[in-house]
Design a protein around this nucleic acid. Structure first.
Length: 228
DNA sequence: GCGACAG
DNA sequence: ATCTTGTCGC
């Protein structure tokens, strides 16, 4: 019997549950967010370039950026994108000073075969609110939204409402919005509208994507993940 | 077997 | 995502 109680406390499964419960916790959003963020990943052969940016809300002034380069460890398989990109994005967040209240992610939220796309997975792992903003639909059906900015149409998958096609700008293809973690569809659409200024994608995602391309150029010119 | 398929 | 020239439009 000696040490049994102790081994119980240190049991891997219990430890994991406690850690998960702690990480998954999201405080109620009592007031408007102060900071929003954008996340994106680019590629250059065997390397992945993850970029994170934090911006003020609702001014959308740049506050902080982070770019990291690392070897990619998982192939791209539709439906399993988070296994490929979450590790890189987590690494980028490790060195980030202030966390955003809400993060816009280039990918699906719950509009996913298992209800856990990149945005949702990342939100759970980081313990922050996330919104999925994809350029294409992965699963589900939706009608085309009206032509004016702000028009949207519900996206249904297996009889459930999982997102929406949102026209963020007149004359351009709508983007696929779906709640990631800690936020509902209406809130997601409102945030995306507030973060979209004249272009198809939300500003934080545009900035993150730009950072990704800059990081890629540095990598190719410098000849390696370091030196920069 | 055929088509679909985030980044 | 990435590989790539020119081109139409504000």
């Amino acid at each position: 019997m000696e040490g049994f109680g102790k081994s119980l406390d240190l049991h891997p499964y219990r430890s994991f549950q406690e850690q998960l419960a702690k990480e998954v916790r999201i405080e109620p959003l009592s007031k408007d967010p102060k900071r929003v963020g954008g996340a994106d990943v680019g590629y250059a052969g065997e390397f992945g370039i993850a970029a994170i940016c934090v911006m003020s809300w609702p001014e959308l002034e740049p506050l902080e950026d982070r770019v990291i380069v690392d070897r990619v460890r998982f192939p791209y398989i539709p439906g399993f994108l988070s296994f490929r990109e979450v590790p890189l994005l987590r690494k980028a967040f490790d060195s980030l000073g202030c966390l955003p209240d809400i993060l816009f992610v280039d990918g699906q939220g719950i509009a996913h075969p298992r209800g856990l796309g990149l945005a949702s997975h990342l939100g759970v792992v980081l313990g922050i609110r996330t919104i999925g903003c994809a350029k294409k639909v992965l699963v589900g059906e939706a009608r085309d939204p009206g032509p004016q900015r702000g028009a949207f149409s519900p996206l249904y998958y297996r009889g459930k409402l999982v997102g929406a096609l949102l026209r963020t700008r007149e004359g351009v293809k709508p983007i696929c919005i779906s709640p990631g973690h800690g936020i509902d569809l209406e809130g997601s659409i409102r945030m995306v509208m507030g973060a979209t200024k004249g272009f198809r994608l939300p500003e934080p995602i545009r900035r993150a994507h730009h950072l990704t391309q800059l990081g890629k150029l540095r990598l190719l010119r410098g000849g390696g993940p370091n030196r920069g």
